[in-house]
């Protein structure tokens, strides 16, 4: 037992060490940004990890100007709308892919995979021209549309994996119990796919929220500029002022919705919801 115990303690110590390294590696840059956002302008470049002088001035500054508030509203609006549309369309497509045999199914899956792999940068110039022609440039739909396009493959892939897990017989049972195909889907399949839907929603939302490339290329004013793009336009009060503090504060603020989003939906992503449906 003693030897066994020693082995377990050794193992635990090794794992703890690995865990700590990973967490530190991931969190140091985040904590650094947080630290910068609380520093005063004078101490900004002093190299201290923990600010010697704490201030909320940077946060007060960003919320005092339209330069930040307006893009924040754009970001929230565009990301939520794009997420909703992508998840609803993705659900229908994924259900069809998981359940039905239709002509062109392989082609559809192939094309969606192709889109997911397509380098987005190569589409920026054509999109820029197309959107200017169509009058979509610098509007909400101008960003929502490309976001949906690139989020759909992700949504379809994640959701079809979840749909495939749901026993086929449940749907047959619903039909026998008198459900129309629509009722079978909304009353039986959709509730069971809920964890998958929420997981997908989180992934799509994060993709839209974090996007910088389309946001900087397809917008020109605060009418539709999202926060990641707006951050790059931050300036200090004068040419000689360093905007690092305010950029850091804004970066911290835009991380918060993601954290809230994940925490809110995490409780609904309960694994093993389907257990007990069929003899397993």
């Amino acid at each position: 037992m003693a030897i066994g115990g020693a082995v377990t303690t050794g193992r635990k110590a090794r794992w703890a060490l690995v865990d700590i390294i990973v967490v530190v590696y991931a969190l140091v840059p985040v904590l650094w940004i947080v630290s910068l956002s609380f520093k005063t302008k004078e101490t900004l470049a002093d190299g201290n990890f923990i600010p010697r002088e704490w201030t909320f001035q940077n946060y007060a500054d960003i919320f005092a100007t339209d330069e930040f508030i307006r893009p924040l509203i754009n970001s929230l609006g565009i990301s939520i709308i794009a997420t909703l549309i992508a998840v609803v369309l993705g659900m229908m497509a994924a259900y069809a892919i998981a359940r039905l045999d239709f002509p062109g199914k392989k082609a559809l899956v192939g094309v969606s995979l192709l889109i997911a792999m397509f380098p987005q940068i190569s589409l920026v110039t054509p999109l820029f021209n197309i959107e200017r022609q169509l009058g979509l440039f610098d509007t909400w739909p101008g960003l929502i549309l490309p976001y949906i396009t690139f989020a759909l493959p992700l949504a379809i892939y994640t959701l079809s994996a979840f749909f495939r897990e749901i026993p086929w017989e449940l749907e047959k049972a619903a039909k026998m119990d008198g459900a129309t195909p629509g009722q079978a889907f909304w009353k039986v399949i959709a509730p069971l796919a809920a964890p998958g839907v929420f997981t997908t929603a989180i992934l799509v939302f994060i993709f839209c929220w974090n996007d910088f490339l389309f946001a900087i290329s397809l917008t020109s004013t605060e009418a539709s500029r999202t926060v990641p793009a707006a951050l790059s336009f931050f300036t200090g009060a004068s040419q000689f002022e360093d905007p690092t503090g305010t950029i850091s504060a804004a970066a911290v603020v835009i991380t918060i919705p993601i954290i809230i989003f994940v925490l809110f939906f995490q409780r609904r992503i309960v694994a093993g919801l389907t257990s007990g449906a069929v003899k397993g």
Binding site: L170, K172, A173, L273, G276
Partner: peptide
């Protein structure tokens, strides 16, 4: 119909 797997709604 009663299914082999029971097909109860979980």
């Amino acid at each position: 119909m009663v299914f082999q797997s029971y097909a109860l709604y979980p």
